[in-house]
Write a protein that binds this DNA or RNA. Structure first.
Lengths: 334, 334
DNA sequence: GAGTCAAGAGTTAGCGTTAACCCTTGCACT
DNA sequence: AGTGCAAGGGTTAACGCTAACTCTTGACTC
């Protein structure tokens, strides 16, 4: 049985240093006026006793936790991992900790996570690509002192960081690009539960305005994972061998389709052109490399964190950081 | 200026329900004996007032935070992202939150993170593939009530989850495999700061026992990232065009080397064979697909979390979960 | 009918900090 | 000498919750 070493409290330090607890508190927090001599002395005692302030006690009295919450649909998706990386770096600089929640692309779990992660648990919140509908998400965000959304917009409640055009515009641009390259039978794979992407019908209508026909049956919806893309690719290509190009909502899905296409004996891009959506590392490394849109994921995360700290500091003005998506033509759709 | 809505406290609920604070506390925590009628009534009042317990206050008195700390070298490395995924799922089941810290492969930052993340900040800790030397890491782990390490071993202090053989054995096996395939000039790229991998000299010696020569100048060390592998690959192949095979510490590095090799006009596997180390998604998707070792990343994370909860529940016996690495021969080294 | 016991509550006393206020000095200025 | 004031530091009272007791009742035992 190891000796139950008791926590060193502020009081202990105060006693040992021969000062009041408040003085020690002031030394630690660099608040109030302390003479250099006292500061020095107290610091030494703190060092010697190995005192560490209790986060919980501090939180209880200041109502600040020193933590920010980050909610992502899927941490294994490189797109989100990069964003989290950016957030974490900025949080580290600001001496904040990151409470990470992964929702596994499950809206129910996301709602549960968000209602647990209230304003008492974290000082600020960054929901990344929330999969919840506005009417569910909004009240959950309102609980919080400070929120910055990524890939969603709630001007009254949160600042926002996102690619300028979003999935919808990318799909639109991809379709135009493919049409100009001569493709006449273009399929589109929409991302399930992603609420800001272009609906299939909208894409069809908008392309019709350009006299480009996209048939409803050439389109599908799936989860934004590689496996889902792979399965959907198999199904879509089996049912519609006439397709000469497919646009996917993101890179993982596009790469899943690419694998399916290769297994079905399609040569890319000769038999099938493919366009993805966020330029993860994987996209540039496959053969042929994937045509996609570059999105500055790390910077999006970092900016969101900076905006969040601004909000937490009381700047409640609505800020919107838009990042340009850069079209990256590569081998899969030259 | 919005009305500063005050937090609903346990006391408020107690008053509204006409019972004592303790009764409410017991209802919430399902402790003690409460009559069904009282429980029902209190629950309704809680619901009605929208009461949510304060984590901080609870932590202050129970000395439990409801959080576990997870420290990873690089969340954008799919290997770690998968492990975190596993941890997060199990933590979620257990109603625990995950405090994630990313150290960016920087040992100084890792040390700083670990000393901040003391036993008052989290109830348990999972350091994943720590890059710190034993003598630095050990005292930092001792601060904690419960620790489970991944890819490191400290039997007195923490349970451990890891692949059975580790980088060293994989390098050894890869070298044997390549030698049997007829390769005589095999290079090895060691992972910098990874402390459980085989040292270059050790590999050279052990291969010498099999009459296989690996020259010191055919070996290099780099960070476990794609970029580092890419650069190292360029350098190594430029300086030693005689190499017919390269073994890398992990998949990202191997894939970086693959890219470099392709740029240098090497055909893989004909001119250069490549073997990686952890079977990330990317490995199976490149052309040719990468020969590597499958490691059950999600399961490693999930097991570690389960072991951690066991430790937190007081089971301090040393547990070691070993996962078999499965050699996956693919196109890059058939 | 006194004693026993358990169910179902209530009471008290912190947990470790900091906000907000209060108290001493010493010194400059009139 | 009296006044004013700032520097440096102390006191007190929460913050919201739960551990550990205590108290009251009614049912059951012998």
């Amino acid at each position: 049985m190891p000796t139950k070493r008791k926590r060193v409290t502020l009081e202990d330090v105060a006693r040992a240093a021969g000062v009041s607890a408040m003085t020690v508190s002031r030394v630690i927090n660099h608040t109030g006026r302390i003479s250099p001599a006292t500061r020095q002395h107290v610091s030494e005692v703190i060092e010697q006793l190995g005192y560490r302030p209790s986060r919980a006690a501090r939180t209880l009295v200041t109502a600040k936790t020193g933590m920010i919450g980050v909610v992502v649909p899927d941490i294994t998706n490189p797109y989100f991992a990069e964003i989290v990386h950016g957030i974490e770096d900025v949080a580290w600089e600001a001496e904040y900790s990151v409470l990470l929640a992964n929702t596994n692309e499950n809206p129910a779990r996301e709602a549960a996570v968000l209602s647990q992660l209230d304003d008492a648990a974290v000082d600020g919140l960054i929901p990344v690509s929330s999969r919840l509908p506005d009417e569910t998400l909004l009240p959950l965000l309102k609980q919080h002192r400070a929120v910055v959304t990524i890939n969603r917009q709630f001007p009254r409640v949160a600042s926002c960081v996102r690619p300028r055009h979003g999935y919808g515009f990318r799909a639109y641009q991809s379709a135009l690009y493919l049409a100009h390259a001569g493709h006449e039978r273009i399929g589109y794979i929409n991302l399930q539960r992603s609420l800001i992407n272009m609906q299939i019908e909208t894409l069809i209508e908008r392309m019709a305005e350009h006299n480009i026909t996209i048939r409803r049956e050439w389109c599908a919806t799936c989860l934004p994972t590689w496996e889902a893309g792979y399965q959907t690719g198999h199904v879509l290509l089996a049912e519609h061998p006439e397709l000469t190009a497919i646009i996917a909502g993101n890179d993982l899905v596009a790469l899943g389709v690419m694998r399916a296409a290769i297994e079905l004996g399609r040569r890319i891009p000769h038999d099938l052109a493919l366009i993805g959506g966020d330029d993860i590392l994987l996209a540039s490394q496959v053969t042929p490399p994937l045509t996609t849109f570059r999105v500055p994921k790390y910077e999006i995360g970092a900016s969101a964190a900076r905006l969040l700290f601004a909000r937490m500091d009381g700047d409640l003005s609505y800020q919107e950081y838009l990042y340009e998506e850069e079209f990256i033509p590569r081998g899969s759709a030259p």
